[in-house]
Design a protein around this nucleic acid. Structure first.
Lengths: 174, 174
DNA sequence: CTTGACCCTGTACCTTGGTAGAGGGTGTAC
DNA sequence: GTACACCCTCTACCAAGGTACAGGGTCAAG
């Protein structure tokens, strides 16, 4: 199966460290389209596809969802027209990325302290790294506020018992 | 419902920004146990529980799974006995945290470049940030190698067609 | 012209991390 | 003593991200 410079789906998957089905799954999600197809229907991929695949995998490991990754991959300056929009999105992404870096640095410091304690034979707190991520800059919801809360499919029947939070908080704490 | 210094599950959930059911889910996963219970069965939580809850949420946003978070929370120097083990685990965690930081910094740089291009009215590449996470230090699989591949439940019937990768890679690439 | 290792579509299933509801008990204020 | 806003357990369901066949076609090598 000579494909010249192009990769078949199997070769791409292997190079990217994922399954063939995963590549097809990404195609369904419109994240990674084949460059072309053979008359037989076989998918062919160029070099860029491998970069995209690796980007996706790495971004996932950094806590981005596929939806967010799609947004990242579509960030580019096409024309001056919607430049403003791209800039806004990119700035927002940058802010969450920087917040993640700060949190990870706090965690890294805590781990280093723990390792030092270890080396010194000094017993630690119940859970020494707990405080490192205690109150993050992330607020872990920056991205999700684009309307459309999930709710599932079974349709809200009204009168939900738990889950609604219209309550009074009248506990004493004497 | 006077509980002194303790929090009920509803108060804890609200303070942590999650649902009551999520707290109970974490309890099932042994990530967050109640400090005590009232005779009625009501769960009560101390201050530490809130810290744990926040830690869990933040660590998730940083790309850690609940299983990994459990590992992080259990890292502590209890006795000199298994100190070696803790140190090994902590070092491994530190390495993945540092790799994540490096990747995020590359992504941040790419985003800043993109924003500058935007500001300059200069059109960009097809996807300017692609290269930032091209070949990460992460290898996004450091954690998963603790035996037991999933496989599901339906049991491998043998002779799987796709999914096994015993193949020859004989494409020409002339 | 067959064999073996690919590839295709389609559909069903899996794991992770939650959510929701049924059915019923608890706690305090009026 | 009865509202009302909690709380309990148990079970079913959901969305995201994959995984796994089934059933069938394709492509080089021998």
């Amino acid at each position: 199966m000579k494909t010249g410079e192009a990769l078949t789906i199997g070769q791409l998957a292997k190079a990217g460290g994922v399954r063939v089905q995963t590549v097809r799954y990404y195609e369904r999600r419109r994240l990674l389209l084949p460059t072309s197809r053979l008359p037989s229907g076989y998918r062919l991929y160029g070099d860029e596809a491998l970069k995209r695949l690796r980007f996706i995998k790495n971004a996932q490991a950094l806590g981005f969802t596929l939806r967010e990754i799609e947004g990242l991959l579509n960030l580019r300056v096409q024309s001056v027209n919607h430049c403003r929009e791209v800039q806004t999105k990119a700035s927002a992404k940058l802010a969450t990325v920087e917040a993640k870096i700060r949190d990870l640095e706090a965690l890294a410091r805590a781990l280093r302290t723990l390792i030092r304690s270890c080396r010194a034979g000094r017993p630690t707190d119940h859970c020494p790294i707990l405080a490192s991520l205690e109150s993050s800059v992330l607020e872990s919801g920056v991205e999700k506020c684009n309307g459309k809360k999930p709710n599932g499919g079974r349709g809200g029947k009204a009168g939900a018992k738990e889950s609604t939070r219209r309550h009074k908080d009248r506990v004493a704490r004497t």
